[in-house]
Simulated assay, not measured.
Amino acid sequence: MSVIETVSDQARDVFRPDQVWPFLMPKKPEINVSQQVILYVEGVNLSFDGFKALNNLNLYVNDGELRCLIGANGAGKTTMMDVITGKTQPDSGTVYFGSNYNLLDRSEAEIAELGIGRKFQKPTVFEAHSVFDNLELSLKSNKGVIPTLFARLSPTEIGRIEEVLEIISLTDQRYMLAGALSHGQKQWLEIGMLLMAQPRLLLVDEPVAGMTPQETERTAELLTSLAGEHTVIVVEHDMEFVRSIARTVTVLHQGSVLAEGTMDQVQNNRDVIEVYLGEEA
């Protein structure tokens, strides 16, 4: 190794983010969940060209809960997630993260910084990079020029990547290009990318669409394992999958909550049978 390379290596060690940059990092927000509720959606209304996408929507999700949302197309599921993540502003209502953070006053980036991660239906991974690189790129770190210039993974960061690889069952694929993964594995990788930022709340949209039965079963295990340390809201149309993971199911219809309870309670609810589950009941 040349002298220049040695000096460069030493400089990277000195300027490692975990050694000198933590004081530049934003403080981890303290979410007030003293009432056991982490998400409050109250009286939310939103119209598009006269169409009522959300109609006095009220939803409360407990900290550490795994909640499933179901409803026909146009019921308001995606629109609700758009409002929670700051992509869309409602006409009226309130949305709070814990009892102390008003999400409607914050941008999409600020909401992500608070600890809310969203996974869309179609996986969006960096296909030309390895699985490991995808997770590294998702680290919650200072992206400034100087920290990036001297960036080197710390033992803590490497350990976190290894931990997430284990959680998403991709340890053996760590050096495989993401583009070579199966559809299900890409979905798991994207969940892993969200986990790298250590979110408190995960919004997951139709995670098992297009998966094999084996991948669907593994996804159920994955999402179930995340509940507790994280709060997980899953939007899904596959009723068998919902039944396999759900403790509480919320049914949306025409922008409002139609019913809420266990899967058995929901499936036996007369209103739900009539407007959504009629053919299956």
Rank of each mutant, 00 (worst) to 15 (best):
Leu149Phe: 14
Ser182Leu: 10
Asn134Met: 06
Leu153Asn: 10
Leu165Ile: 01
Gly184Trp: 01
Ser141Lys: 15
Ile161Trp: 01
Leu181His: 06
Gly179Leu: 00
Glu157Val: 03
Leu165Phe: 00
Leu135Thr: 00
Leu153Lys: 10
Ile161Asp: 00
Asn142Ser: 10
Leu170Ser: 01
Leu137Ala: 06
Ser154Asn: 08
Asp172Glu: 14
Val164Gln: 00
Ile146Leu: 15
Thr148Asp: 11
Glu136Cys: 07
Leu149Lys: 14
Asn134His: 06
Leu149Met: 15
Arg160Pro: 01
Ile161Arg: 02
Leu170His: 03
Leu137Met: 12
Thr156Met: 04
Thr156Pro: 00
Ser141Thr: 14
Leu149Ile: 14
Pro155Tyr: 02
Leu135Ala: 03
Asn142Cys: 09
Val131Gly: 02
Ser182Lys: 05
Arg174Val: 10
Asp172Tyr: 06
Glu166His: 12
Lys143Ser: 09
Ile146Ala: 12
Gln173Thr: 04
Ile167His: 08
Ser182Asn: 09
Ser138Met: 09
Glu157Gly: 04
Ile167Lys: 15
Ile168Val: 09
Ile146Phe: 15
Leu153Cys: 11
Leu137Tyr: 06
Ser169Trp: 07
Ile167Tyr: 10
Glu136Thr: 08
Ala178Lys: 02
Ile168Met: 03
Ala178Gly: 05
Lys143Leu: 09
Glu166Gly: 13
Asp172Pro: 03
Arg174Glu: 12
His183Ala: 07
Lys140Thr: 05
Gln185Tyr: 00
Thr156Asp: 13
Phe150Val: 07
Leu170Glu: 04
Ile158Ala: 10
His183Thr: 09
Glu162Gln: 12
Gly179Thr: 03
Thr148Ala: 14
Val131His: 00
Met176Leu: 12
Gly159Val: 10
Ala151Arg: 13
Leu165Lys: 02
Ala180Leu: 15
Thr148Trp: 13
Ala151Glu: 13
Glu162Leu: 03
His183Gly: 15
Leu149His: 07
Leu135Gln: 02
Glu136His: 05
Val131Lys: 01
Thr156Cys: 06
Pro147Ala: 04
Ala180Glu: 11
Arg174Leu: 11
Leu165Asp: 02
Ala178Thr: 05
Ala180Gly: 04
Leu177Met: 10
Leu153Ala: 14
Glu162Ile: 04
Ala178Val: 04
Ser138Asp: 04
Gln185Pro: 08
Ile168Asp: 03
Ile167Trp: 09
Met176Cys: 14
Arg174Met: 11
Glu163Arg: 11
Tyr175Trp: 14
Arg160Tyr: 11
Ile158Asp: 02
Ile146Lys: 13
Arg160Trp: 11
